[in-house]
Design a protein around this nucleic acid. Structure first.
Lengths: 138, 138
DNA sequence: TCCTAGAATGGACAATGTCTAAGTCAAGCA
DNA sequence: TGCTTGACTTAGACATTGTCCATTCTAGGA
């Protein structure tokens, strides 16, 4: 059974066929689908699901903190169900492949007070870019 | 005289009124305009400049490495003329204000080999998010 | 079983960015 | 200085991604 689905159910989320399908599509590791990809896969399981519902559902899962929005490329947002282990992303500049990675240390400590301009910092996002082994050997 | 303009001229870039205006608009510190904002400001100086030209020109400046594309929010790309001093960005989650910041150390060294999945990493982008002093006191 | 608040639908709309065909011009050269 | 030419610019159509809204439907409780 889907972890994500379990977690959502546990929050008293009203369960519908559409929401179940979206949650199922998003479950797993190293999953980083765009809204459109989610929609395409959802349609395969439930042909009459609408685009608006997919957007709404993704938006709600993000609000609930069960899914993270990622913008690794400059096009569509991607949705990452791995919201409960802090991680960063490693992106292949050629093929767009994305991996979850776990850097050591706390990137926040690298920013001296003098460089904070009085901001209260709540979050740090790190994106590593490079070439994946596949593309490098091609 | 504009630094950016000087650098572009030095590369034998064919100079036109439109390109000059785009370069002028982009010059300065902590500048992070969207393509649309660049266009709006360019139109103020040269009313007949077209959107396509602004996009083309920005794209070329990015290719030449004289301007950096930044995606701090999930909407439009922003253009940062400060391409020659490595820096990261600090973004206010409420008002969207952006500051250039200079963390100490090299974020690359925080990613162990075991977390690199065979990638050759060429670049690291860090975005700090928080609340700016203005928004915090409001 | 019936009600009702909340969810889903689909289609219009908005924002951002890309492409193309035709016209225009900067810069080198005679 | 005045051609020539290839690069640049233009306007607008088009593409992609995302949002909104009025209507219809339905899950889950009474």
């Amino acid at each position: 059974m889907s972890d994500l689905l379990e977690r959502l159910r546990g929050r008293g989320w009203r369960m519908t066929a559409q929401r179940r399908v979206v949650a199922e599509v998003l479950d797993g590791d190293h999953i980083h689908l765009t809204a459109d990809e989610v929609h395409a896969r959802a349609v395969a399981k439930l042909p009459e699901i609408s685009r608006a519902t997919v957007y709404n559902t993704l938006g709600e899962m993000v609000s609930l903190g069960e899914v993270i929005e990622v913008s690794t490329d400059r096009r569509a947002k991607r949705y990452d169900p791995n919201a409960h282990r802090p991680h960063q992303h490693l992106v292949c500049a050629r093929c767009g492949a994305i991996r979850d990675v776990h850097p050591v240390g706390n990137p926040l400590s690298d920013l001296p007070d003098s460089e904070r301009f009085g901001f209260t910092i709540s979050d740090v996002e790190v994106t590593y870019r490079g070439t994946c082994p596949n593309c490098a050997s091609a």
